[in-house]
Computed example of a mutant assay.
Amino acid sequence: MSDTRLDIIAIGNAIVDVIAQADDAFIAAEGVAKGSMRLIDTEIATSLYGRMGPGLEASGGSAANTVAGAAALGARCGFIGQVAQDQLGEVFAHDIRALGVHFDTPVREAEPPTARCLILVTPDGQRTMNTYLGASQFLPAAALDRDLIASAAILYLEGYLWDPAEPRAAMRAAIETAKGAGRKVAFTLSDTFCIERHRGDFNALIANGDVDILFANETEILSLNESDDFEAAVAATAAKVPTLVVTRSEKGAIAIQEGARAEVPAEPIAAIVDTTGAGDLFAAGFLAGQAQGRSLTDSLTMGAVAAAEVISHFGARPVADIKALVTAKLG
Rank of each mutant, 00 (worst) to 15 (best):
S2A: 15
T4I: 01
D7K: 04
I9P: 06
I9Q: 12
N13E: 07
I15E: 06
D17V: 08
A28W: 00
A28L: 11
E30W: 09
G31K: 07
G35W: 09
R38Y: 02
L39I: 14
L39K: 03
T42A: 15
Y49C: 09
G53V: 04
P54E: 13
S59W: 01
G60F: 02
A63N: 06
A68M: 13
G69Q: 09
G69N: 04
A72W: 00
G74I: 05
A75Y: 01
A75V: 04
A75D: 05
C77W: 03
C77D: 12
C77I: 12
C77K: 11
F79S: 06
A84Y: 07
D86S: 08
Q87H: 14
F92T: 08
D95R: 03
L99D: 04
L99C: 04
L99F: 02
L99S: 05
V101I: 13
F103K: 08
T105I: 07
A110V: 07
A110D: 15
E111M: 12
T122E: 12
P123R: 10
D124K: 02
G125A: 14
Q126C: 09
Q126H: 13
T128I: 03
N130F: 08
T131C: 03
G134C: 08
F138K: 08
L139N: 02
A141M: 06
A142I: 02
A143C: 08
D145T: 11
D147A: 15
L148H: 01
A150C: 03
S151W: 03
A152M: 13
Y156V: 03
G159D: 11
Y160F: 14
Y160G: 04
D163M: 11
R168D: 01
R168K: 12
A169Y: 03
R172P: 00
I175D: 00
E176M: 10
A181M: 06
G182H: 05
G182R: 05
R183D: 10
A186Q: 05
F187D: 12
L189D: 02
F193E: 06
F193T: 10
I195Q: 04
I195P: 05
R199K: 14
G200A: 15
G200T: 14
N208D: 15
L214M: 12
N217E: 07
E218W: 02
E218T: 14
I221A: 04
S223R: 15
S223L: 01
N225K: 09
D228H: 12
D229M: 03
T237R: 07
A239F: 00
A239M: 00
K240G: 00
V241G: 08
T243R: 11
V245N: 04
V246A: 06
V246D: 08
T247S: 13
K251C: 03
K251S: 12
G252H: 09
R261Q: 14
A262G: 08
A266H: 02
A266E: 06
E267F: 11
P268N: 09
A270W: 00
D274Q: 10
D274S: 07
T276S: 13
A278W: 10
A278V: 10
G279W: 04
G279D: 03
L287F: 07
G293F: 04
R294M: 13
R294S: 11
S295P: 12
L300D: 06
T301Y: 00
V305A: 06
A306G: 10
A306L: 07
A307N: 05
A308S: 11
V310S: 09
S312L: 06
S312D: 04
H313K: 10
A316Q: 06
V319I: 15
A320P: 00
A320W: 00
K323Q: 14
A324R: 15
V326S: 11
A328L: 05
K329A: 14
